[in-house]
């Protein structure tokens, strides 16, 4: 079973887990994800491969603590093991030469954006990154992302760091200022609402906009259909057809609704988990 090498809190409720998984690390590419289970009673949850080191045989995952599964994972310490990890899953990002690419990261979306930005840079693109968070305290990997960007913009909702406001504002300005049409592609990864609004922002400019969907999953191999999403006139499975899709074609209302399917159960699960934990 895959052993945790390191589990550190990057900022409140965002954890960086380095895990030993040599076979997966050897195959991982930007855009891939893995499915993990914290323990035997656990849920199978998808997490993006945020970084990988084939020589050390490790993967880096970045985890936002939102419910039972992510809380359980955040509690695992170095030397402990995950019950299960499988991958790499999904299609890797299409890394091509677009000229300029704009990489928009919202919240924990910085984790999946980083390896793609790095690969885009290595492929000879001019990389402009926009990193956004609710407040300065929730920003992480700023230096890492800045290091692979030619231009780096940071926004916070409360103005505690960088520009005050949402990531869509600098994105719109970049598009408006781009008279030569240098921007060939926009990547937006973060909460679904943010991705939706980024796609709306780029739509009038008709610039290809890729998003990475974080639907609820089960197997991760195309066997259950739980991760289905309407894209254009097709129903696709996020795990095998994605997780990256053309943001202009995604049915965002559908994505948002399907993410709420288990709201009541998630609450119940978390309450029970907290109670069991407190009772020791």
């Amino acid at each position: 079973m895959p052993e945790i090498v390191e589990n550190t809190e990057l900022c409140p409720d965002i954890w960086q887990i380095v895990v030993e998984a040599p076979d997966v690390a050897a195959k991982a590419l930007p855009g891939h994800f893995v499915i993990v289970m914290a323990d035997q009673q656990g849920e199978r949850i998808p997490l993006t491969v945020a970084d990988y080191d084939p020589s050390a045989g490790t993967l880096t995952l970045v985890l936002a603590v939102v419910g039972t599964s992510s809380t359980k994972l955040s509690k695992l310490e170095a030397g402990q093991q995950l019950y299960a990890l499988l991958g790499p899953l999904g299609h890797p990002s299409e890394i091509a030469r677009h000229g300029t690419v704009v990489m928009v990261a919202g919240g924990v979306g910085t984790a999946p954006i980083y390896p793609i930005a790095k690969a885009m840079k290595a492929a000879g693109n001019r990389v402009v990154s926009i990193q956004g968070a609710r407040t300065a305290e929730l920003l992480f990997w700023e230096e890492k992302l800045r290091a692979v960007s030619d231009q780096y913009i940071v926004t916070t909702d409360d103005g505690s760091r960088g520009r005050k406001g949402l990531v869509t504002e600098p994105l719109r300005e970049l598009l408006e200022d781009d008279r030569q049409g240098a921007i060939g592609c926009v990547y937006a990864i973060g909460p679904p609402v943010m991705m939706k609004f980024c796609a709306e922002t780029t739509r009038p400019f008709d610039i290809k906009t890729i998003v990475s969907l974080n639907t609820i999953m089960g197997d991760g191999t195309g066997m259950c259909g739980g991760c289905r999403v309407r894209v254009g006139d097709k129903t696709l499975f996020t795990c095998v057809d994605g997780p990256e899709f053309d943001g202009h074609l995604v049915d965002w209302d559908g994505v948002l609704a399907r993410q709420r399917i288990y709201v009541a159960e998630e609450k119940c699960s978390m309450e029970r988990y907290a109670r069991v934990r407190d009772e020791g």
């Binding site: 009673q41 849920e43 039972t68 089960g218 259909g225 119940c268 988990y273």
Partner: peptide, 28 residues
């Protein structure tokens, strides 16, 4: 695609393999 519409394979996998019938003792 409404919530509560499942393929049988998702419904049965959640229940059998992931033991959702024992939720919330099991997390799924």
């Amino acid at each position: 695609d409404l919530g509560g519409v499942y393929s049988a394979s998702e419904y049965l996998t959640r229940s059998n393999l992931m033991k959702a019938y024992l939720f919330p003792e099991y997390d799924t």
